[in-house]
Design a protein around this nucleic acid. Structure first.
Lengths: 239, 239
DNA sequence: GAGTGGTCTAGACCACCCT
DNA sequence: GGGTGGTCTAGACCACTCC
């Protein structure tokens, strides 16, 4: 049963730098010592330092900019209450934060079955709307919503708002939300949208919203970098 | 606005190997070509190949064993229905899978406040029970439960069972579960317990169980590798 | 002994940012 | 020009597994 390196040089370096960051030994806004400086201090190779720094980027602790240096990453975590399944503008105001919805694309696509294996999804081509949702100016979530073709007469309405709002505009209200919450390495889209590295942990919500109109379901996926968003749920336990 | 490398050699290699795995070009159980073979095939350095393979380990696609080779990682995903907040043996049987609970440690610790910032936790020293939960023989979850000191007369009971079961043994039943679901890079404990690399995405549930006895709350954290467990929740939407 | 992956180094080049 | 991080290479050593 292999694994566990722990004794590696880059691990020692990583843990020491991590400790310093947690002890606030580096000011946010000013760069950490350069890789060359660290290499001299720790008495190890340049490359070993870079390896440690890269690992710390992958866990969200640091962020490097070529030509500028390496910085402590500032975090701002938002809590998404699943009791209000999909933050709409009303919810955002309630939470006291400025929410923005930025349209990425409107296309016609089939639902990616492998992601929705826990759901019964239609196989026909759906309207597919991708939005970036930001809170207080920082992007925190990329949402892909699939709406049935019956929405075709108002596709233009879909941009810049969330599926729940689009539903509302059609006079429909969803009454049940079924949500699969999972962790995942960042998708390609999330990597681009949030400028995060390959493998960066993200939180995914794969959801189905149903309305009183039984033929009308909205499916979707939301993805957020792990350090931007968490979900809260409160449950009365049956028996 | 930096970031985005995509054109890097190791990225091309990574994507090509990833494609081959998804296309089932490599049999599970037999090793992939060695780094040396890949280096020859792609016409790049040994080290560049290793970099790509390492990234693919960090996203859970591959798993390497020194002396043996690199293998496609077999995944088995369990779905945890939050409607039955904490899988007990009864729930496990209902789901038709063999659940195991393996005691790691019983200690007295204070609750780590920074992890429970969304909860109001007691500051006194609590009983702290760590268990590894496995399903069908594979470990899928490490759980840390904090129980109030009033459980002191039966600390011996805490091993090998979950907090909800311990509660039941005391004639108490929880009626509300408050759960914060988040993604995170693997904690040190999870790294050891699941033999996963630094930065591996995990799903965390930070929870509070309350009973009709208002002074009795159980707090806890569960952590699972992202490819082992997801959470499902179904909600009636108020309003 | 041969092959494997993991680590570490020295050295090089690039694109970027600042002065 | 000098500093930064990012990439890539060649070469070495180690611990491991299998034959």
């Amino acid at each position: 049963m292999p694994r566990a390196v722990a004794s590696a040089l880059y691990e020692k370096v990583r843990k020491e730098i991590m400790r310093r960051v947690f002890e606030n030994e580096y000011e946010v806004g000013t760069p950490l010592p350069s890789a060359a400086k660290f290499a001299e201090e720790f008495g190890v190779s340049n490359i070993t330092i870079k390896r440690a720094l890269r690992d710390l980027q992958h866990t969200g602790l640091l962020r490097s900019f070529p030509g500028l240096g390496t910085f402590v990453r500032e975090r701002r975590m938002f809590i998404h209450d699943l009791g209000f399944p999909f933050a709409s503008f009303g919810d955002a105001q309630r939470l006291g934060l400025k929410q923005g919805v930025h349209l990425l694309s409107v296309t016609r696509e089939r639902i990616h079955q492998s992601l929705f294996s826990e759901f019964e999804t239609p196989t026909e081509k759906m309207h597919c709307v991708r939005n970036i949702i930001s809170a207080d100016g920082t992007p925190i979530m990329i949402d892909t919503s699939y709406l049935p073709p019956s929405f075709s007469n108002s596709v233009g309405d879909l941009g810049g708002k969330l599926a729940s709002d689009a539903l509302r505009d059609h006079g429909e209200h969803f009454h049940t939300a079924r949500i699969l919450v999972a962790a995942n390495p960042a998708s390609d889209e999330a990597q681009k949208a949030f400028a995060i590295p390959n493998g960066y942990p993200t939180l995914r919500r794969i959801y189905q919203l149903t309305t009183s109109n039984s033929s009308l379901s909205i499916f979707g996926i939301s993805e957020s970098p792990f350090d931007c968003l968490a979900c809260l749920v409160e449950l009365e336990v049956s028996k």
